[in-house]
């Protein structure tokens, strides 16, 4: 039997908001250790992996591993009906009838909404994703997630103009990270210097660089990744010319959301 409870819907609402625009279906793996979610976009360019350990839930009972594909658009619609302080219960019955039940209960007026979701096929996930050693990344940048989101928005407003394929080049050298994009009539560069000020110790921009690196990514994907900012104050971007870039948001002490995307290569 699977039975989970969260006393505040916010966490799950934020997770769905962070993934449902880019990924249409996801694979949810429940086990004794927690929930692992994986999804890939339809063009197989971006992948998201989420871990929520059992401790993230107020009640967690899973006596048999269960893997289910779910439609994220439908789930996001249902979760928009949930208030932030609703109590969520997730249940799947013993007969594994290919449905899972999400219940939202308002602690104020006792109103209960029940949604049953049928399992669906997924886009070739889950995949085995190895933990690449730190040494394989040429650079790592850690910055406030709100700052990263702001940078993506600025670049979009300049570079976008209806073009879905705007490319952003992220370059790291010793003390700064540059985000560069080309618009119709010019270019735009945002330079972020390493900062760690005494008055804002919680909002540093930190750069660890082994060698200079300059990589190209699709801005629209980065824009979607930046929605992870509702789950964490900080984002860590790991860059390598041979590996998928990782945009990681740690979720308190209880897990993470990681977005993966390979850099574009010159033809």
């Amino acid at each position: 039997i699977l039975e989970l409870r969260l006393v505040q819907a916010t966490l799950f609402k934020n997770v769905l908001e962070a993934i449902s625009d880019l990924f249409s279906k996801a694979n949810f793996d429940f086990s004794g250790t927690g929930l692992e979610l994986q999804a890939m976009d339809t063009s197989h360019v971006a992948l998201v992996a989420l871990l929520l350990r059992a401790e993230a839930f107020n009640h967690y009972l899973c006596d048999r591993d269960l893997s289910m594909g779910l439609n994220l658009a439908d789930m996001a619609k249902a979760f928009r009906c949930a208030n932030n302080d609703d109590i969520i219960t997730i249940k799947a019955e013993e007969d594994w009838s290919d449905t899972v039940t999400f219940t939202f209960e308002s602690p104020e007026d006792g109103e209960i909404s029940i949604f049953d979701f049928d399992f669906v096929g997924t886009n070739g996930v889950p995949l085995e994703i190895p933990e690449f050693p730190e040494s394989e990344y040429q650079a790592k940048v850690r910055m406030p997630s709100a700052k990263f989101m702001r940078i993506c928005k600025k670049l979009s407003s300049f570079g976008d103009s209806g073009d879905r394929d705007t490319v952003v080049i992220i370059s790291v050298d010793k003390e700064c990270v540059n985000f560069f994009t080309r618009g119709k009539t010019g270019t735009s560069t945002i330079v972020c210097r390493q900062t760690q000020t005494v008055d804002k110790p919680k909002e540093p921009t930190l750069i660890e660089m082994k060698e200079q690196v300059s990589l190209a990514f699709d801005l629209r994907y980065m824009n979607s990744f930046s929605k992870g900012s509702t789950l964490s104050d900080q984002v860590t971007i790991s860059l390598s010319s041979n590996l998928p870039a990782v945009f990681e948001y740690k979720i308190a002490e209880t897990g993470y959301i990681r977005y993966y995307m390979l850099p574009r290569i010159e033809e």
């Binding site: 197989h44 360019v45 085995e128 490319v167 010159e266 033809e267």
Partner: peptide
């Protein structure tokens, strides 16, 4: 001109 490599192939080949 640059090309996007898909992740699916990458993860299946490592």
């Amino acid at each position: 001109i640059s090309q996007q490599v898909v992740l699916h192939k990458f993860f299946q080949h490592i």
